[in-house]
Design a protein around this nucleic acid. Structure first.
Length: 495
RNA sequence: GGCGCCGUACCCAAGUGGUAAGGGAGAGGUCUGCAAAACCUUUAUGCGGCGGUCCGAAUCCGCCCGGCGCCUCCA
């Protein structure tokens, strides 16, 4: 088996082949930082996090670039309207760059919480004005763009392949255009590479066409090609950006270089809330910081990965609760597994001291770890099928629980299982933390106190004082400590 | 109007030609003082409907019904 990726350019799954052997260059459209991130961002960046994690897991030396859009993204994609950052800065009465800084930090804070591995390079549009001007100049020189009143527009009629990604040729655009045609443009579908700035516009730069600022699409071409080359392997982004954003990126880049821009286009689907699209105009946007108050970031991540990245994800309390329970089940097993390993380690130390070799002869249930690993890989190879991969983790879970319950274990098997969980659920999916809290994993005074209370309860139970022992258990539960009586003693966890 | 997606049990969700993964919820059982956890069994002769192709279809084709998205904002 080898990795297959659904390429929007050809609308089907293709075998993944890198441009340079063993290396992958990937660019993903980053956020426009004028507000806090919402669950749509979470779905998008968790999805691409999986792409990057899996590529690295497969051994590809992966360079991941994701931009921060801090200028040029207008409130209207038809090159009209205000700059989003400037608009927010007026609202908050702070400098645009303060808006940018505030929400960039907020973005990374949320992504870190979700376990999203940071991009290798997070370039900002304002830091690449020179590169953007250079492409605009080049396109004018080559006859693909024209200047009008201090603004520069790309002439879509000069690029016969315009529309190849979104399958939306410009001829068809004109008829159904909803927006008024900008009189500066030769064709309704022409888009801005550079916009003339009015004097009150705070963010503006010197250019060959006077003071102005870059068009939204241009930054991605400039920054991706600067760091990844004129042709690179993967470009990702949200489905809604297929048109016009990505279509425009292709036009600018390919006309400028004369080469193919990107080999594989990956687009992730959208989040709906209660069956409806999530959008500002509908007022149903769920910010991550709010969502995290109710569901842990790990639950949100797990929930996202339980559906495929090309499917829409419906955000409902019922579904999140289900995901929360499911993840708890998975992590419970990991906790029990690691506690068992801890227990055996202590036992082993003692036995070795006593020169008793009988301990090691204990047999364990057979578990086909290689088979699970293979099945997991096949799921991921099939266009990053995380729901199926998670299903396999649950299959593994059942077998591990059976082994743990049977009590016939040995160190080596348990450690191999733990290593596999770490590899598949940890490194690749990022849903199994390397440290799941156990009663032995942290040694605070509080833990000793809990242990002491449990001992008292054990004594009460020995005397069959059920009312008392139940009272202790209920009391601890109210404090967030869950007690479980097992064959060989009582364990506890924070629940 | 143009382009596209989806409809799988009570809920979420894989499966895209070979006879329905997984999670949640529910039911029964084992273990346990009880509980929890765990395990076992169980819950779609059927995958929106109707036709068609095929030895064989949830999967391919056609029509119909229903829901949604992009072409404004938004990942």
């Amino acid at each position: 088996m080898s990795l297959k990726i659904y390429n929007t350019l050809v609308r089907q799954k293709e075998e993944f082949k890198t441009i340079v052997e063993g290396r992958v260059n990937i660019y993903v459209c980053g956020p426009t930082v004028y507000g806090h991130s919402h669950i749509g961002h979470a779905k998008s960046y968790v999805s691409f996090d999986i792409v990057v994690r899996y590529l690295r897991y497969l051994g590809y030396k992966t360079l991941y670039v994701q931009n921060i859009t801090d200028v040029g993204h207008l409130t209207d994609d038809a090159d009209e309207g205000e700059d989003k950052i400037e608009k927010q800065s007026k609202k908050d009465r702070v400098h645009p760059m303060q808006v940018v800084e505030t929400y960039t930090r907020s973005y990374f804070e949320d992504m870190d919480a979700l376990g999203v591995v940071r991009p290798d390079i997070s370039p900002r549009a304002t830091g690449h004005i020179i590169e953007q001007i250079e492409i605009a100049r080049d396109l004018i020189k080559k006859g693909f763009a024209y200047e009008k009143n201090g603004s520069v527009y790309f002439n879509v009629t000069k690029f016969k392949e315009y529309g190849k990604l979104s399958r939306r040729p410009p001829e068809e655009m004109e008829a159904g255009a909803r927006v008024d045609v900008n009189p500066e443009k030769k064709h309704a579908a022409d888009f801005a590479l550079w916009k003339k700035a009015e004097s009150e516009h705070i963010m503006q730069w010197q250019s060959p066409w006077g003071m102005g600022f870059p068009g939204w699409h241009l930054e991605c071409s400039a920054m991706s090609m600067k760091y990844l080359g004129e042709t690179f392997d993967i470009h990702g982004g949200g489905m809604e950006n297929q048109f016009p954003h990505h279509e425009c990126e292709i036009a600018q880049s390919e006309c400028s270089t004369g080469k193919q821009f990107v080999k594989y286009w990956i687009h992730n689907n959208m989040v709906t809330v209660g069956g409806q699209k999530m959008g500002k105009s509908l007022g149903n946007v769920i910010n991550l910081k709010d969502a995290f108050k109710k569901y842990s970031p790990l639950v949100v991540r797990f929930f996202i990965l339980q559906s495929h990245y090309r499917s829409t994800l419906d955000f409902t309390d019922e579904a999140l609760e289900g995901a929360s329970k499911g993840l708890e089940k998975l992590l419970n097993t990991i906790r029990n597994l690691r506690e068992e390993i801890e227990k055996l380690r202590k036992l082993e130390d003692r036995k070795i001291d006593a020169q008793d070799s009988s301990f090691k002869s204990q047999d364990s249930g057979f578990i086909d770890l290689a088979g699970f690993k293979k099945a997991f890989g096949e799921a991921m190879d099939d266009d990053f099928n995380t729901p199926q991969a998670i299903g396999i983790l649950f299959d593994l879970n059942r077998e591990v629980n059976t082994i743990l319950a049977g009590g016939k274990t040995n160190m080596q098997t348990l450690q191999s299982i733990d290593a596999l969980y770490n590899e598949l659920g940890g490194t690749v999916l990022g849903i199994i933390p390397s440290h799941v809290e156990t009663q032995t994993s942290s040694g605070a005074d509080e833990n000793d106190l809990i242990q002491f209370i449990i001992e008292l309860r054990t004594e009460a139970r020995a005397q069959k004082l059920w009312a008392m022992s139940d009272k202790i258990r209920d009391g601890l539960k109210n404090l967030g400590i869950v007690i479980e009586d097992k064959k060989d003693g009582t364990t506890w966890r924070r629940g």
